[in-house]
C-alpha cells in the first residue's frame, strides 16, 4: 500500500470520527445509566457488559435489564427484544442498498454495527459511499459508537452514576438533537423531505400508544417512506 492510499484511509477514519462524535456524546451517558440500572436489577458486571458487547441495542437493553430484575421469563424477554429491534431490519435494508456496490465482507461488517444512530449518521453522509476507502468512514462511525456504548456500560456498572444527575438527564436530549441536526440540512436542501419526516412523526405518534414504541417506529418509517415514493422527484435525491 503506497503513501497516498494510507493518506486516503487516514482521512476517511478522521472524517468518520468527526461524524460519529455526536453519537459518542449521546451514548456515553445513556450507557452509564444502563450500567447502573442493570446492576440494580441484579446483573453482574460481566453480564451487563456482555449484554452491551453482544446485543448492542440501547432501548432493548434497558428493557431487558428491567425485565430480568422483575423475573420475567427468558422467552418473553427475547420476543420483546425482537419486536423492539425489528426496525433495524428496515434501516439495514435501506443502508445496505445504499452501499450495494461494496464487497460482501464490508456489507456484513457494517450491518453488524447498525443502530438507530449509526444508521442515521451513515445514511445522511452519502458522499463517502463513492469515495475511495469510504467504507473506512462508515466503519469508524460503527466502531467508535460500539466502543463508547460498551465502555459506558462497563463504567456505569463499575462506578455507578459518575455523571451528576441533572447533567445526565440533560444529556438525554443529545441523540434527539443529533437526529434533528442530521435531518434539517437535508430538508434545507430539498424541502419535500419534510413531508416524509412529518408524516412519519405523526404516524408514529398516532399508532405507538396502541402497538408500542418498537412497532410505532417501524410503521412510521415504512409508511412515511411510502409517501416518499410519491413526493420525491427522482433526480433530486
Amino acid at each position: 500500500m503506497d503513501l497516498e492510499e494510507k493518506q486516503l484511509i487516514k482521512m476517511q477514519v478522521r472524517d468518520g470520527f468527526i461524524a460519529g462524535s455526536p453519537i459518542v456524546v449521546g451514548y456515553l451517558p445513556i450507557a452509564i445509566a444502563y450500567g447502573v440500572l442493570a446492576k440494580q436489577a441484579g446483573m453482574t458486571l460481566m453480564e451487563l457488559t456482555g449484554m452491551s458487547l453482544l446485543v448492542y441495542a440501547g432501548a432493548a437493553q434497558f428493557m431487558g435489564a428491567g425485565m430480568i430484575g422483575l423475573g420475567v421469563s427468558a422467552l418473553e424477554i427475547i420476543i420483546a427484544t425482537f419486536v423492539l429491534n425489528f426496525r433495524h431490519f428496515v434501516m439495514s435494508l435501506s443502508f445496505i442498498n445504499q452501499i450495494k456496490h461494496y464487497a460482501r465482507k464490508w456489507k456484513f461488517g457494517l450491518s453488524l454495527g447498525l443502530t438507530d444512530e449509526t444508521f442515521s449518521v451513515s445514511s445522511i453522509y452519502k458522499k463517502q459511499e463513492n469515495q475511495a476507502y469510504g467504507y473506512f468512514f462508515y466503519g469508524t462511525i460503527m466502531l467508535t459508537s460500539y466502543l463508547s456504548w460498551v465502555l459506558g456500560s462497563f463504567l456505569g456498572g463499575m462506578l455507578g452514576d459518575i455523571i451528576p444527575q441533572n447533567l445526565s438527564q440533560s444529556m438525554g436530549v443529545a441523540l434527539y438533537a443529533m437526529f434533528i441536526g442530521l435531518l434539517i440540512p437535508s430538508i434545507r436542501k430539498y424541502k419535500r423531505i419534510a413531508v416524509i419526516s412529518i408524516a412519519a412523526m405523526l404516524i408514529n405518534y398516532i399508532v405507538s400508544p396502541y402497538i408500542g414504541d418498537g412497532w410505532g417506529i417501524v410503521v412510521g418509517t415504512v409508511l412515511g417512506a411510502f409517501i416518499g415514493i410519491f413526493v420525491l422527484e427522482e433526480e433530486k435525491i
Binding site: R87, Q98, S123, A200, I203, Y205, L223, G228, L232
Partner: peptide, 21 residues
C-alpha cells in the same frame, strides 16, 4: 422500491425524533 429505500432515512429520523423527544 429503490425510491422507498432512499426515503427511509428521512422517515426514520422523523419517527425517531417525535414523539420520543
Amino acid at each position: 422500491v429503490n425510491k422507498w429505500l432512499q426515503a427511509i432515512p428521512y422517515a426514520a429520523l422523523g419517527a425517531l425524533i417525535f414523539p420520543g423527544i
